[in-house]
Design a protein around this nucleic acid. Structure first.
Lengths: 226, 226
DNA sequence: AATAAAATGTGATTTATATCACACCTATTT
DNA sequence: AAATAGGTGTGATATAAATCACATTTTATT
């Protein structure tokens, strides 16, 4: 971990674009950078939450230990903030964040973050907008989860990976079948079966972790119709 | 609808306690009060969103038309804000708000709301905290929804009505069986059966809309264990 | 008060999907 | 190269809860 100059990295963040030189220096002095390898935990459910994290590069899963099983709430791709709700909303983390590929992250002390909100209205405005969008997305996810069956949910997540994470029709899945089950809220076996079915139908090609979306239109149809 | 003095009502809101006299006057001039009877829509999914609503009194359900059915996202009890995510997060409402008892509400123009955020850091801080708590609550709801079976979800919602809405072990249900099904994401028939079962077990007493929680401990147990 | 309409309770049936069970395959370790 | 462990595919079975079906009750309307 090392202290960093935030003007060189955080300036890429929309929310930080309006911070003055002096504010950035304050941020820089209280900011430490860290690297996480695949599988490493960035912060942990039930631990005290005292930092906001700015993801510079990489991919992260947010997960909760529910009463029955682990559930992946969502994936977060850099650049973005991590842990604003869980750090600002309570003293204790309500979920964990785990890197699913090599990730670099900046830890911002919560008091510094709060001070930034206080002194910079444009910054706090951006944060508010992001929180609002997150809530709308979360509502959407919840509705899909309840009203679509596993087939549709899996299709939705594959399209999401393709369109928003890898920006390609082909990519290597960052999760194993069991984790994909946690993501679509199903069982490992069911996910396995559905992959086979989708492949048999010629909608996708799967070879281990490698996935190719062949018939995007039909996959979109499955995603919408359930 | 009439123009109102916000210092007499909004001051009750934690988030507004720090607004200056002048800011309150700005708010007052652009603020209109309205009364909604049970069943009336306050704002509608897919309509343009241009107001933040401050609920002064009453009870409201937020609902989405999903692909298969209607789903009640959550209940909101006055005093609280309504529609911040859907108004700030997008131009179009992602859900509807419907009064489920007589409700009075103040409509605040979005530009006035944005201006308040800009000029008053304490106000925007309060809003950020509320949004963060909402997101954590929403994650919780989602996890329960997926991992508990209907029995547990129904128990959770009954306890929630008792503890957070009516502050009593006895109350009149503000929703019919079909709406309760929308809330716990189940079917009317299943809710009906579960009410009967809970009553047979002596955990609750039901008479039409009137509900009494008799054995709170067992109900809590059902709520947690699924 | 009579009638229509809506809401509710409960049995029978169906269905999506979890769970169980086991074979196979791929890595890593020895 | 052998051995162990984790990951994966797929059939058989079990189950929670949806759906269908209809009787009954409650509420609204004429």
């Amino acid at each position: 971990m090392k202290s960093v100059s935030c003007s060189s990295c955080l300036l890429k963040s929309e929310a930080v674009v309006n911070l003055a030189e002096q504010e950035l220096n304050v941020l820089g002095r209280s900011c430490v950078e860290a690297v996480f390898e695949k599988g490493e935990t960035i912060f942990k459910q039930d631990a005290l939450s005292s930092n906001i994290i700015y993801l510079q590069t990489g991919l992260v899963k947010l997960l909760v230990k529910g009463p029955q099983r682990i559930q992946i709430l969502r994936l977060k791709k850099a650049p973005c903030y991590l842990g604003i709700p869980t750090t600002m909303g309570d003293k204790i983390n309500h979920y964990s964040a785990v890197a699913i590929e090599r990730t670099t992250a900046c830890f911002i002390d919560i008091n510094v973050f709060k001070e930034l909100i206080r002194v910079n209205p444009d910054f706090s405005y951006e944060i508010i907008i992001e929180l609002c969008r997150n809530e709308l997305e979360q509502f959407n996810r919840c509705v899909k989860l309840v009203q679509n069956q596993v087939f549709g949910r899996l299709a939705t997540h594959l399209l999401d990976l393709s369109a928003h994470i890898y920006l390609s029709d082909q990519f290597d899945l960052p999760l194993n079948r069991s984790e994909i089950a946690d993501l679509v809220c199903s069982s490992r076996e069911t996910v396995s079966r559905l992959f086979s079915d989708l492949a048999k139908e010629g909608i996708i090609k799967v070879d281990g972790k490698h996935l190719e979306i062949v018939d995007k239109l039909r996959l979109q149809n499955i995603s919408e119709k359930g």
